[in-house]
Amino acid sequence: MLEAREVRKRVGQREILRGVSLRLLPGSVCALFGPNGAGKSTLLKVMSLLLRPTSGAVLWEGRPVAGRESEVRRRLGVVGHATFLYDSLSAEENLRFYGRLYGVADLARRVGEALELVGLEFFRREPAGTFSRGMQQRLAVARALLHRPAVLLLDEPFTGLDREGQARLAEILERFRVEGGACLLVSHDFDETLAVADRYAVLSRGQVVREGSCRGVVPAEVVRLYQEAVGGVVR
C-alpha cells in the first residue's frame, strides 16, 4: 500500500534517515519502535508526504507518489505530535473544516459518527481549546479518521489518553485493521502498542535494524529483541 524505499533524509549536516525501507501492508498494524533521535517521527513525516526525502522514494501501490501527492494525501490519516486543531473552534467545527478540505461526502453525518467513535459526542459544541490533552488527542484521532483513510500514520497516539480512551483507540485500530486498513504506529510504549500491532520494526540511528511479526509473541520477547537491536535498556 504505502512504502518507503531506501529513504534518506538529511537536515543540515545530519543524516536523520539512512536508507530506510518499510512497507505498510493492507490489514496490518506495524509498530515502529526506536530510541529518542532514531528518526521515527521524521520517517512518519516523510511517509505522510510532509517532508520530501533527500533521496529514495515514497511509493503508493507500487508507484512513486511524485506527481500524485494530492490523490495519496486523500488516502492518508495522520496523527502527529501536534493535534492540528484550532483552539477557538468547537470540536464539530474543527472536524467540519477538515472534512471540507478532504471533500468528505455527507459531512454532517460523518462528523457525528467520528465524534461518537472517539466518545466526544457530548462535547461537540465545546471549543477545542477548553479540552484536556486527552480529549484533544481523541479529537485528533477523529480528525484523522474522518475521511475514511486507507492508511493511518500515528505518532504516539496514546499520549494523554485515559484508560478508557486507550481501550477505545485500541478497538478503533483493531477494527481498522480487520477492515483492510494499513497502519504505522510510532510509540515508546511496548505494551499498549503490541496489543494492537501484528508487525513491528525497530529504527536505530536512521536505519531499520530489525523487523518481523509480533503475532503470538509476548511483549517481553519483542522488548528483548529490541534491546538486542539497539543495545539499550528499555524502561
Binding site: S70, H81, A82, L85, L101, Y102
Partner: peptide
Amino acid sequence: QSERQNGALQGLILAPVD
C-alpha cells in the same frame, strides 16, 4: 498565529489541498 498553534499549518499541508 492560529496556524502555528497546535501545528495547524501542518494539518493544512497534509490535506489534499492545492
